[in-house]
Design a protein around this nucleic acid. Sequence first.
DNA 1: CGAATAATTCATCAGGTGTTGAAATCAACG
DNA 2: CGTTGATTTCAACACCTGATGAATTATTCG
Lengths: 203, 203
Amino acid sequence: MVRRSGRRPGNQDTRTSILEAARASFAEKGFDKASIRSIAADAGVDPALVHHYFGTKEKLFLAVMNAPINPGELIPQALDGPRDQAGERLIRLAISVWDSPAGTAALAVFRSALSNEWTARLLREFVVTQILRRAVGEIIDDQKEAPMRSALVATQIAGTMVARYVLRIEPLASADPDIIAAAVGPNIQRFLTDPMPEVFKQP
Amino acid sequence: MVRRSGRRPGNQDTRTSILEAARASFAEKGFDKASIRSIAADAGVDPALVHHYFGTKEKLFLAVMNAPINPGELIPQALDGPRDQAGERLIRLAISVWDSPAGTAALAVFRSALSNEWTARLLREFVVTQILRRAVGEIIDDQKEAPMRSALVATQIAGTMVARYVLRIEPLASADPDIIAAAVGPNIQRFLTDPMPEVFKQP
DNA sequence: CGAATAATTCATCAGGTGTTGAAATCAACG
DNA sequence: CGTTGATTTCAACACCTGATGAATTATTCG
C-alpha cells in the first residue's frame, strides 16, 4: 500500500550542505578528529540532523566517499598510452586528482586511513589490492610479480602524497606537478617494468 | 640550605614502566588516540601518577622520544661507504631501525605525525629539514639541489614506511629487508645522484 | 481546513578525555 | 619514634564524543 499524503521530501539543500561540510572536515582532520558536532556546526545544523540523514558516522563517511571519486574509472585511463611512460602518467594522475576539488575526498580517505583501522582496510583492500593491482597486472608480463610490483608502486605514490599533502614538506609541497612527475615518474616506471631480484618469492 | 631528611627517591621502576607503556601505546595508536588513562592502566598505575612524573601529555611524548632514537647518530653512519650505494644503505638503515625494539619509538613519531599537527612539525622541521637535508648535502654536489633531493628521498622512505608499517600492504609488510633494499634502494639512489630536470628552481 | 509526513531541534545518555589538588601511603633519616 | 618528603591514589572538574528518542516546526496533500 503506497500512502501518498503528507509532506513530500523537499529542500535537499541542507543534506548536501552537510555532505560538503563533512567532506571538508574529513579531509582536513581525518575520520577520527572530524566530529559530528563540528560538521553540523559548519553546516549550520543540529548534530541530530546528521544522524537523521546518514545514521552512523561511518555511513556518513561512506556517503562522502561515494560521490566524487571513482578510482575504477581513473586508473584504466592512466593505462592507455606507451607502456614505458605509465609510471609518469600514474603519478601525474594522482597529483591531478588530489589537486582537483574532488581531491579533498581522496585526502579524506588517505588521512583517515593513516590513523583509523577500518579506513586503512578500505584503502588497502579496495584501492591497492583491487584497483592498483589489476592496473599493474595489465602493464607487466609476469603476473606472479603483480602483488609486489603494485605494492612498490603504492610505496612511491603514497610517499609522494604523504610528503606533499599530509606532512607538507617543502619544496615538494609547492612544487609544480610537472617537476614532480619528471622526478618521480621514472622511479615508478622502474618498479613497473625493470627486472626485479627474486621479487616473486612470497608465501 | 640542603635539607636531608624524609624518604629518599627510591623505586624508579614505575617511572620507567610508565615510559615503556607510553612508548608502546604511542607506537600502536599515535599521539592522539593513546590516552593517558590507558597508558596508566597498562603500567598498572593511577593516571595522576603519570602527570606527577611527566607533567603534560606532550612532555610525556617527548620523554618517550628522547631515550631510544637519535637520528643524528644514525644518518651519518649511513653515509660512510661508496656513494653510489648510499640509497640502498639509507633504506636498509630505516628498515633496521624500525624493525628493532627501539623502532617502536620511530613508529610512534611517524604515526603521530600523520594525524597530529605539532608532531608533524617535529618530523618535518627536525628529521627532514635538519637531519636528512644535511646528510643528503654531503652526498650531492650542487647544494642548491639539496632541499628538493632530500624531499624526494623522504618521499620514497616515508612511502615505504607507510606501506609496510602503517597500512601493512602485503606482500611488502612481510617481505625480507634485503628484497626491499634491493627494490627500493636504486630509486633512492636516483633521487640522490641522477641529474634532475630543473629541480633547483624554487622560490 | 486538517491530517499526514518530512525536516529540524531539544534534552539527555553513557562514556571518554586531559588535568588538578588534596589526601593517603610508605620508606628513610635524625 | 616521629618527622620529612617522595610515591601513589581518590575524587572531582570541565569538556568533548557519538548516539537516541521524544518533541516541535514546517510543508504539502487530500
